[in-house]
Simulated assay, not measured.
Amino acid sequence: MSGDHPLTILIAADTYPPDVNGAAVFSHRLATAMANRGHTVHVVAAREVNGPGIVEQRVEATVHRLKSHSQPTASTLRLCLPWEAKPDIGRILDEVKPDVVHVQCHYMVGQAAVQEAARRGIRTIATNHFMPENLDPFLPFPKWFKRIVARNSWRDMGKIMGKAAVVTTPTPLAARAMMRHARLRKVLPLSNGINAANYQLEAGENVERKPWPMVLFVGRLAVEKNVNVLIEALGLTTSSPAPHLTVIGSGEQREPLERRAAELGLSDRVHFTGHVDDSALRTAYLQADVFCQPGTAELQSLVTLEALSASTPVVLADAMALPHLVDDGVNGYLFEPGNAANLARKLDTILALDPEGRARMGAAGLQKAEQHSEAKSMDIFEALYRGADADDFLPG
């Protein structure tokens, strides 16, 4: 598959826009980047509503939506039943005849795509955006049973992704976890990437600031994001004038979070926007005085990279992959997960900075984001599609 001829690429994703989450955003950016490089891109993903499978013609790709089913514990997750997904994916592979299949998860769509591609001898790349523990909030079972589910999920990850020519994940921490728990021999850490220039002020551009100090959260409103801790921390801040919190995103926790803000007397300082378009999101990053990610299950956190790209200081939970994005006291701070008082102190520290100090911290954040160049990541994925091996990019 060497050379520079255009490829036919099939991306298999359990989640894809209009879904709003890190894996969906990455899959869309991947499809867009490969289409812009002249390749023919197809995406296989769950249909976001009930009904038979359909085909959508989008700017970046032909999207094959598989029949899916709602499930009771999370309205944002769709289930593709194996006996329905496998024959449909097999048929799509026979029609499209891709040079490479790139799966984004080992669940449902990803599993069926790996199996059907292997039957046809099609080169497969597997990227993992998801830790089995991320399922915990959606499983109405005791902790001991969830641990069994997680162990089985790790085992399945190794069995399924082990069939791929190359396995990648966004961070070294995630790669080590996959090699340890899924017993995968080799996992290439490869950042999802960010185009930092997209989030910088253009020449002559001016973004109107809020009339109060602005703390920003962006993401799904899910249990593991711990937005409740951020709301509690807001009430403990001592900065003057009092900071407000803008919460961008949707999810099953919105109503409980709104109730919690009301209980704490913070309804007038916590602003829930729901999902916003890319332009409004960019503006929010540029308006914010500080960005906070209190989640404890982040494999990389694209929204943190976006905030850093906008030169916005960050306060992140000291958990999972988030510490890789912070040089403490340089471009932001880490806080003890779940500790609202500790988080409040870190927010106050940044809000107390003078304009020059905040600008220095923002510039350091931009420098950190630029280490995660989207163009470099896409170059490597394209090389993997053409036959490169993980050893070509692993250090040493």
Rank of each mutant, 00 (worst) to 15 (best):
R360M: 12
N342F: 01
P337S: 11
H324Q: 08
P337A: 15
G329W: 10
Q371L: 12
K368T: 14
E336S: 08
Q367P: 02
A364E: 04
P323N: 09
L351K: 03
A352Q: 15
G329L: 14
I350A: 05
H372K: 00
K346A: 14
Q367A: 14
E336K: 04
A341E: 10
T349V: 10
D354Y: 03
G332A: 07
D327P: 01
D327G: 09
L343S: 03
A363F: 05
A375F: 09
P337R: 12
K376C: 07
A363I: 05
L353N: 07
L366D: 06
S373D: 03
D328W: 00
L347M: 11
S373F: 02
T349I: 01
D354N: 12
V326Q: 08
L343F: 05
G329R: 07
L353P: 02
A364V: 09
F335P: 01
R358L: 06
Q367G: 08
A321H: 03
A340M: 04
T349D: 13
A352G: 14
A352R: 13
E356R: 15
L366R: 08
H372R: 02
K368R: 14
H324E: 11
V326W: 10
P323Q: 08
E336Q: 10
A321S: 10
G362H: 09
L325K: 00
G338S: 14
L334R: 06
A369T: 05
H372D: 00
L325V: 01
G362N: 11
G365M: 02
L343E: 01
D348K: 02
L334H: 04
V326F: 10
K376D: 12
P355S: 15
R360W: 06
L351H: 02
L334C: 07
A369R: 06
S373E: 03
L325C: 00
Q367I: 09
R360C: 09
K346C: 10
D348T: 04
H372G: 02
G329S: 13
N331I: 11
E356N: 12
D348E: 01
Q367N: 13
D354T: 10
R345H: 14
L366P: 00
D327F: 09
A341D: 13
D354V: 06
D348Y: 06
G338V: 13
M361L: 13
D328C: 01
H324Y: 08
G365Y: 02
Y333V: 03
T349G: 15
A340K: 02
L343P: 08
